[in-house]
């Protein structure tokens, strides 16, 4: 599912007030491109115990709760008590999007009955409708001409036309930023009042928007939930931790540069960078703002959420701040 980045960018541009709960783990294809998004597992019983233990480590970054939800939330689906707390909060959320691959779990029925939008991977025609009010559908086609991914956005019928228009505008804008008509084929139409389709497909090689995430929005496994204070800005304070894992979500399976910008490092005690548990060959440079950029070429794996690791030597000073994470071609 390499089109998650494009899809997330279109939806955020068209529906900026929307809050996302990406239930696509262990892949979570939209999560990385949607800062502040919640994430979870639609069917935790199918998860291998070791993968469940891994995902159970993560908490939402300090700015994840900026929209009013609980801070430091764990991944949905792994802790019944925390799930109940999150659902209680989300019930009052005005504009909520649930993204998943498969049937919505029964626990989400009340959210769907309350009118949450649903983004499902694959075709939805012929499937039982989700609980709640009648919904229209916008078929979204992303990926490449050679490998098309289909997603269906289920939303109130009277919202189909205006949302389609905004998504189409967003697609043309994004395509213009990423190579224009030579790189993208964009098209769509409003079929009926309650049905539309929109495609944004890369011509030739797969393409994805660049990604730059503030440290404070990242899902992490630091032992205590760090606050994002004035001194940390948008950063994630590492405190005394010597190593931290960051959950990115599903990334396009291709070569890219992974860059982390940090403050508070010693030039003689540089950290090491890891992707999916394996060490990367890193280089570093100081930037003009007094921070340090650690970067490495990395190849993401398809079909599973990518995890970035950062390990500081034992002698490195405490109190480093992870300012941002960047994923760029």
């Amino acid at each position: 599912m390499s089109g998650g980045g494009v899809l997330a960018c279109l939806l955020r541009e068209a529906l900026p007030a929307l809050r996302l709960l990406d239930l696509g783990l262990p892949a979570a294809p939209l999560l990385g491109w949607w800062p502040g998004a919640l994430c979870g597992i639609a069917d935790p019983a199918r998860l291998a115990p070791a993968e469940a233990a891994l995902l159970g480590r993560f908490r939402q970054g300090a700015h994840g709760g900026a929209w009013g939800g609980p801070q430091g939330m764990p991944i949905f689906g792994l802790d019944p008590a925390a799930d109940a707390a999150l659902l209680a909060t989300l019930e009052s959320e005005a504009a909520l999007l649930l993204a998943l691959d498969g049937v919505p779990p029964p626990a989400l029925a009340r959210l769907l009955e309350a009118g949450a939008l649903l983004l499902r991977h694959g075709r939805t025609e012929g499937l039982p409708p989700p609980p709640g009010p009648e919904r229209g559908r916008i078929m979204l086609l992303v990926g490449t001409l050679a490998r098309i991914e289909r997603w269906d956005l289920l939303l109130p019928p009277d919202a189909v036309a205006p949302v389609f228009t905004r998504l189409q505008d967003a697609a043309h804008g994004l395509a213009a930023q990423l190579g224009g008509g030579r790189a993208w084929q964009v098209g769509g139409r409003l079929v009926t009042g309650g049905l539309a389709s929109l495609g944004m497909l890369a011509i030739g090689a797969e393409r994805a928007p660049s990604l730059r995430l503030p440290g404070a929005t990242l899902w992490h496994d630091l032992p205590a939930a760090p606050a994002a204070g004035i001194e940390a800005g948008e950063g994630l304070r590492l405190g005394a931790a010597r190593q931290v894992r960051l959950l990115l979500g599903g990334m396009p399976a291709r070569q890219a540069w992974l860059r982390l910008r940090l403050r508070g490092l010693s030039p003689t005690r540089m950290p090491a960078l890891f992707l999916d548990g394996l060490r990367l060959q890193t280089q570093w440079r100081a930037d003009d703002e007094g921070s340090v950029v650690i970067e490495a070429p990395a190849r993401m794996q398809a079909g599973q959420a990518s995890l970035v690791g950062l390990a500081l030597p034992a002698e490195a000073p405490a109190g480093a701040v992870l300012l941002s994470l960047e994923f760029a071609a």
């Binding site: 291998a48 070791a50 993968e51 233990a53 891994l54 480590r57 190593q243 894992r245 090491a272 890891f274 999916d276 548990g277 394996l278 060490r279 599973q304 995890l307 690791g309 390990a311 030597p313």
Partner: peptide
């Protein structure tokens, strides 16, 4: 210890992801 010393040719892997 992600920064431990392994013999040459032996990759170190984070135990939390070793199942992958």
């Amino acid at each position: 210890d992600w920064l431990a010393r392994a013999p040459e040719g032996v990759a170190l892997v984070d135990p939390a992801l070793a199942h992958r």
